[in-house]
Amino acid sequence: MIGIFRTNISSVDDKNSVVTAIFSQFRVDACSVDIEDCDRVLRVVSPARLEEAVIIDFVKTLGFTCQILE
């Protein structure tokens, strides 16, 4: 599963805390946030079937907006 999401994560500290939280909560191969992109793109790569809604809800609990990037 590869999930690509639009967020409002804008600082390096926020990016690092979100990526660390995702790695600790889910089984993922890769996770990154491009804070230079206008959509602040969060990309999550998981070997398992991981529902996009689960990632969205989790990021929202961390205090950020998150939606599927179309």
Rank of each mutant, 00 (worst) to 15 (best):
A53D: 12
A21R: 13
V59R: 01
K15S: 10
I22R: 01
G3A: 04
D37M: 08
L69E: 13
E70P: 14
R6G: 01
D57S: 12
V33M: 11
A53H: 05
I68R: 15
R27T: 13
I22V: 07
P47K: 03
I35G: 10
T65Q: 12
I22Y: 01
F26E: 10
V41G: 00
I9N: 03
A21K: 09
V59S: 03
S46L: 10
L42F: 04
I2W: 03
T61K: 03
R6P: 00
G3E: 00
D57R: 06
A53S: 12
V54N: 00
F5I: 01
I68K: 15
S46N: 11
R27M: 13
D34I: 05
S32C: 14
C38R: 09
I35L: 10
C38Q: 08
V12D: 12
D14K: 00
V28Q: 11
V18K: 02
S10C: 06
R27N: 14
C38Y: 09
V28I: 15
D34E: 10
I68W: 14
Q25R: 15
G63D: 06
D13F: 15
C38A: 10
R40C: 11
T7D: 05
T20V: 10
V12S: 13
I35P: 04
A48Y: 06
M1Q: 02
N8G: 03
A21C: 08
K15Y: 04
V33L: 11
G3R: 04
D37L: 14
I68M: 13
G63L: 01
T7V: 08
R43M: 09
V28M: 11
P47D: 10
Q25P: 09
E51V: 05
T65C: 13
R27C: 12
I55K: 00
F23Q: 14
I22G: 01
A21H: 12
P47W: 03
D57V: 01
Q67N: 13
V44G: 08
L62N: 06
R43S: 13
I22P: 00
N8Y: 05
V33P: 05
G63Y: 02
T61G: 01
I2C: 00
I2F: 06
I68V: 15
A53V: 07
L50T: 07
F64H: 13
C66F: 10
V19K: 08
A30C: 10
F5S: 02
I2D: 06
D13Q: 15
N16W: 09
D34R: 04
C31D: 10
D29K: 10
C38E: 05
V54F: 02
G63P: 04
F64M: 09
V41P: 01
T65D: 15
S11Q: 04
D34H: 07
L42I: 03
V45C: 08
E51A: 12
I2Q: 06
F23I: 11
V59E: 01
D37T: 09
I4V: 04
V18A: 07
I9H: 04
F64A: 05
I35C: 11
M1C: 03
S17I: 08
S32D: 15
R6L: 06
R43K: 12
F64I: 10
E36P: 00
N16L: 14
T7P: 02
F64K: 07
